[in-house]
Every structure is written in C-alpha cells, then in structure tokens.
Amino acid sequence: MTVINIKTPMSKEDRKKLKAGDHVQISGTIYTGRDAAHKRMIEALKKGSPLPVDFTDQLIYYVGPSPAKPGEIIGSAGPTTSGRMDAYTPELLEKGLGGMIGKGNRSEKVINSMMNHVAVYFGCVGGAGALLQSCIKSVEILAYEDLGTEAIRKIEVENFPAIVVIDTQGNNLYETERKKYLK
C-alpha cells in the first residue's frame, strides 16, 4: 500500500491531487475542535466577530483528548464522530478551511460545500487514541480554554495516519467501498 506524505497547510492545488481511498501521513500544524468549539465559533461569526484561528488552507481535527499523564503533553487522542459538526462545517469551509479529520459520514450539504471550496475529508481509525497520540509532538491551547477537552488546540503532528474518505470531487469511500462487500 502506497502512503502519501502531506504537509500542512495544504493549498487548493495540493488538495485537488488527493483521491478518495488514498492513504496519507500528515505532518505539520493542525487544529483541534469539536462540538462546543464549533458552536462558539459559529456564534462568533453571527455576531461579526473574528474566528480565533485563520483556517485558510488548514486542517481541523475533531478530537477531545483525554488528560495528559504527568510528563506527557496530551492523553489519548483519537477522532470523534464528524457528523455532529455538519451543521457548522459549511461556514468554516467558506472561511477557507482546507479539510477535516474525523470519523463517520458527512451530510450532503457538507459534501457539496467541500466540492465548492475544494476541501478534503480525512478519516482515521476511531478508538485508536493511544496510537494516534504518539504522532502528536506539541500542543498549545489557542482558544476557549474554559471548554477543557473541547478547547481549540494547535498541535504539531508527525506522520499522522489517515485515509482520504471524501475528496474534492465528492467521491465518497463510504459509498464506493461498501458496494464491493454488500451481499
């Protein structure tokens, strides 16, 4: 199996090259955010306030890590279900977000918005929090610290394994792969 190494931030040109089914290893800065942080960001946009991060060409990782043990920088850190962020994602894509990392299906509205804004959706193995933690090299809380595990963190990752599940053309592995094994 070939693995494509990618570096963040990812330009539109870089994103277009990825195809659903590609196995990748992500290195560079990514941002964490899940339910409560998304809600707050969208509320900020509604009020005309700026987002805490410039998401242009950046990737957001849907994760709420467990606490770090003494001497470590972060706890277990696997993906959470992406579908809960569907209500908020199109607005972030409009602000330039280049892609998302999570697990599970996305809504039609999100996929259409991804196609309009040339964004990629990566899936990683749910529950593999201990393994994925070892790819995280630094962690900094950027915003909404009061949200605890749901705060927005800037994290540096090295060779973070993921699969392109929905590409910029809207090809969706959840649909294409299942058909091959449906009896």
């Binding site: 890590p65 467990s66 277990s76 193995v125 529950g127 593999a128 929090g129 201990a130 393994l131 070892s134």
Partner: peptide
Amino acid sequence: TMLDNFEVAKRRTIPICQDT
C-alpha cells in the same frame, strides 16, 4: 491498527480511546 492500539494503550497505561 485497532489491535496495535490496544498494545500501545496497555504498554503505556493510557486510555484505548479518548472517549472514556
């Protein structure tokens, strides 16, 4: 990957999954 993750969690005594 799932099986590897169990080994890492056990060896380092950290949660298998962040959603505990």
